Simulated scan of single mutants.
Amino acid sequence: MGKIVTFGEVMLRLATTGYERFSQAGSFTATFGGGEANVAVSLANYGLETQFVTRLPKNDIADSCIMNLRKYKVGVDHMLRGGERMGIYFLETGAVARASKVVYDRAHSAIADVQPGMINWREILKDASWFHWTGITPALSQGAADACLEAIKTANDMGVTVSTDLNFRKNLWKYGKTAAEIMPALVEGCDVILGNEEDAEKVFGIKPEGFEVAHTGGEINAAEFESVCTQLMQKFPRAKKVIITLRGSINANHNSWGGVLYSQGKLYQSKRYDITHIVDRVGGGDSFMGGLIYGLLTYTNDDQKALDFAVAASCLKHTVYGDFNMVTVAEVENLMGGDGSGRVSR
């Protein structure tokens, strides 16, 4: 099995303590996180070889971030150093009927100022079996979008599997282009497409009939999303698998969680988890993606088991503070086997 390469921005995360609001905060807890970095940490934690590609400035905060990634055995051999700053995001964790809030401070970050030709993708993807990106990266700047497209085309040319998490973030598309203008050319080169209940609609106008995510009351019928999968495959015929994560939000602390996977004309559905005491849901989709890549590479020709691993891994992520999913393969497989008791392991 070759290495897995991911590409995107890693940020300094500054979170209020507990459930404090921004206006109450006298201090913030500092960690690091970002979609593609989160996926790389999950995969490295499962024992797979990873390389996370980004651009970071030459300063002590960026050095600390690189040390943090190395601690989790993520490969950082191909990072670019340059630019003026790391991106930052501030997190206020919601509770019950009050939603969580994220405030970004990432304009003109080092990765946003990347330009095509700066990254030697052919060298980086040598001996790789998988390349992963998310819709967050091309939202940062035209340069980041162009660099991402370079990577995808190179991976296609070298026979490397390409996956994407559509990850639509309306607050990031600020440089004069919309997701609908930029994303199709990138997604065309993808073998595996992941999205949630809203991504396909917000980016491509694709949605299941008669469904409004804001009015689910926590109840989502997985079968309704088969049409989303088939429409995405019709639009992007290279795709071999389309996966939709299904989150039913009862309130900020109580969600239902599951997913569907569509491949070769068949819809696979996961079991649904009832997550009643969420510790931290940020990075939930990334933990799903990390679990999915691991599952597809490990449980060869068993799409159901790959989906089940992804959903269980992400369910466990909701119990872990921070962006990174610090759970083991054994813990995920234990939950897959039906043990969700949470009893002390002695």
Rank of each mutant, 00 (worst) to 15 (best):
V5I: 09
F7P: 03
F7Q: 04
F7T: 05
L12D: 00
L14E: 09
A15T: 14
R21Y: 10
A25S: 15
G26W: 03
G35K: 02
E36D: 14
E36H: 04
Q51A: 15
V53T: 13
T54M: 11
K73Q: 14
M79A: 06
R85L: 01
I88H: 11
Y89E: 08
A95F: 12
V96M: 13
A99K: 14
S109D: 09
I111Q: 00
Q115Y: 14
G117D: 12
R122N: 14
R122E: 15
W130V: 00
G143F: 09
A147H: 04
E150R: 01
V162P: 00
S163T: 11
T164Q: 04
N171F: 05
N171A: 11
L172I: 10
E212Q: 15
H215P: 05
N221Q: 15
E226T: 09
V228N: 08
K235R: 15
R238L: 06
I243K: 06
T245V: 01
Q264W: 01
K266T: 13
R272A: 12
Y273E: 07
D274Y: 08
D274I: 07
I275V: 15
H277C: 11
G283A: 14
G284C: 07
G285N: 00
F288E: 00
M289P: 00
G290C: 09
I293N: 00
Y294C: 00
D302G: 01
S314A: 11
K317A: 12
H318I: 01
H318E: 03
N325G: 09
V327L: 00
M336H: 12
G342W: 03
R343S: 12
